[in-house]
Design a binder for these strands. Structure first.
Lengths: 258, 258
DNA sequence: CGTCAAGATATTGTCTGACAAATCGGATAA
DNA sequence: TTATCCGATTTGTCAGACAATATCTTGACG
C-alpha cells in the first residue's frame, strides 16, 4: 500500500542535492519531480487557490517558480489534465475546469480534496456515499462471492482482530471493505475502494476509541462477514448499514480534531 | 458536449500534412498529437492488447511506431499513468497495472472500455451500477434540490419531449439524469455522470424504438421529475427503479447489434 | 559451489533550446 | 458597424544531450 508514503511529511527533498539551488517543490526521496509538481499544482487547485475558470500561471512561470524545466511542468500539467482539473489552449494558457468536470473519484484528487479546508464536510459526503454503495456491494457479494474472495474477506477480518497497532487495524479494515467491493463482481464498484481508503484514513484521526467501542465495531464487521459467507444478501445489506450507522456515531460523538 | 467529437470516425489526420510522412496515429483535426497517442495506447491497453503485467514498448519504440517525438510519447504516458493504467520505472520500462488499479470511472477509460470486445457485458455492469446509484441520487435530490436545480431537470425533460432527432433526445436524456445527480447535493455522485453518459450512448445503438415505447419511457421520466418536484424521496426512488427496469427490458428485447 | 560486490547496460527522468501551430486581440479596411 | 488581416503570446512539437536508476552480468572470495 502506498498509503504509508502519503502519510510521510514532505520536507525539502531528501536526495535533492542539486547543483543550482534547492527544488522549490517539496519532494520525498524516490518520487519523480513531475509527480511532485503535479501534486503541488493539483493541491493548489483543489484547495481553491485557483478557482474554476481562473487562468493558471503559464508554463514558463511554473518553470521559474519551481526551478524545474518546462518539460517537467508540461508532464505535470498533462497529468492534471487527465484528471479533469484543467485544460489548456495555445495563446490563452491553462485554466481550471468547473468542479463537475473534476475526477473526484480519482485517488490523487480525492487525497488533495480530503486535505482541503472542508475536511468535516468531506467526511460527511463520503459517509453518505458509502451508505449508497456499500450495503448493495455487500448484498451482491453475498450472492456472488467465490471461495477465494470469501477467504480474502475473512482474512482481512481476522487481521483486524489481531492487529496490535491502530494503523495496522485501519489497514486491515480497509482491506476488508475493499475485498467486499471486489467480491461484488461489479468492476465499476472497485475503483470506489479509494473512497473507503480515504474515509478510513480520515477517520483514523477520530479513533481514540476505547476497547469497548473497538470490540463492538469488530462484532459489526463479523456480522457482515458471516452474512456474506452464508450467502444471505439481505442480511449482509443490513449488517453493513448497522456498521455505517455506528461509524456515524463515532464521528458525531468525537470532538472535531484539527 | 464533446460527445459529438467522440462519435466522429478517426480518419488519417485532416490537417496533418507533415514534411516527413503521415502521422501513424489517427487524428481528428484540432486534436493534439499527445492526446491521440494517449488514446491509441490507452485503447490498446483497455482492449487487452497488453494484458496487466505486460511490459509495454519503450518510449523510443512508441516514438518510432507513431513517428512522433519522445516528448509527445512521454506526455501521453503521463496521462495514462494519471488514469492508473500503467506505471514506469527506469531501466525496466512501463508496464500495465492490474485492472483494479485502473480508474474505470474516468471518462476516457470508460470510453475505451465501452468500445472493447465485451460491450454487452459492459452495458450490463453499468446498468447494475445505475440501479445502485440512481434511485438513491433521485431520493436525495427530492429531499434537497434547489429551485434552480429543479428548473434544470424540468427543462431537460421538456427537451426530451420536443426533441426531433434521436440524437437530440439522447442528449437531453443524459442531461436529465446528470441534472438529478447534481441536484442530489453529493459532490461524489457527480463524476458518475460519465457513466450514464456512456450507458445512454451505448444504448443509443439499441434504440430503434417505436413511438409507443418512446412515449412510455417519456412517461416514466415524467414520474421522476414530478416526484422530485413534489419533494417525495420515496416516490422518486421507486420511479427511477421503474425507469431502469424499463431500460433493461429494452436492452434484453433488442437483438444485439454489431 | 554459492554468495556477495562491482561494473556494464538499458530505460526512464530531466534539461535545454529551438521552431511550429493555434488563437486571441487589436488595428485596419470595406 | 462589420469583416479581415496582422502581430504577439502561449502551448505544442521536435531534437539531442546527459543524469538517475534499476537490472543483469561478471568476477572475486569464502
Amino acid at each position: 500500500m502506498q498509503k504509508k508514503k502519503a502519510r510521510e511529511s514532505a520536507g525539502p527533498g531528501a536526495g535533492a542535492v542539486r547543483p543550482a539551488g534547492l527544488r522549490h517543490v517539496s519532494r520525498i526521496s524516490g518520487t519523480r519531480v513531475h509527480t511532485s509538481v503535479a501534486n503541488e499544482i493539483g493541491q493548489r487547485i483543489v484547495r481553491g487557490d485557483y478557482p474554476p475558470g481562473t487562468i493558471l500561471p503559464n508554463e514558463a512561470q511554473w518553470s521559474n517558480m519551481f526551478e524545474v524545466s518546462r518539460s517537467v511542468v508540461r508532464e505535470a500539467i498533462k497529468m492534471l489534465m487527465a484528471k479533469g482539473l484543467l485544460t489548456s489552449r495555445p495563446k490563452v494558457g491553462s485554466w481550471v475546469e468547473p468542479r463537475e468536470r473534476w475526477n473526484l473519484l480519482d485517488r490523487d484528487v480525492l487525497t488533495w480534496y480530503s486535505a482541503s479546508p472542508e475536511r468535516k464536510a468531506f467526511l460527511k459526503t463520503v459517509q453518505e456515499f458509502r451508505y449508497i454503495i456499500e450495503p448493495e456491494a455487500a448484498a451482491l457479494a453475498a450472492a456472488r462471492r467465490t471461495d477465494e474472495q470469501m477467504a480474502e474477506i475473512s482474512q482481512a477480518l481476522q487481521e483486524m482482530g489481531t492487529a496490535t497497532t491502530l494503523q495496522d487495524r485501519t489497514d486491515a479494515d480497509t482491506r476488508f471493505h475493499v475485498a467486499i467491493l471486489r467480491a461484488s463482481g461489479n468492476e465499476l464498484l472497485m475503483p470506489l475502494g479509494v473512497l473507503i481508503d480515504s474515509a478510513l484514513d480520515r477517520l483514523f484521526v477520530f479513533t481514540t476509541r476505547e476497547v469497548n467501542s473497538l470490540r463492538h465495531a469488530q462484532k459489526l464487521h463479523e456480522n457482515i462477514e458471516k452474512a456474506i459467507r452464508q450467502k444471505k444478501p439481505e442480511t449482509a445489506r443490513s449488517a453493513v448499514r448497522k456498521l455505517l450507522a455506528n461509524t456515524d456515531e463515532v464521528i458525531n460523538s468525537a470532538k472535531i480534531a484539527p
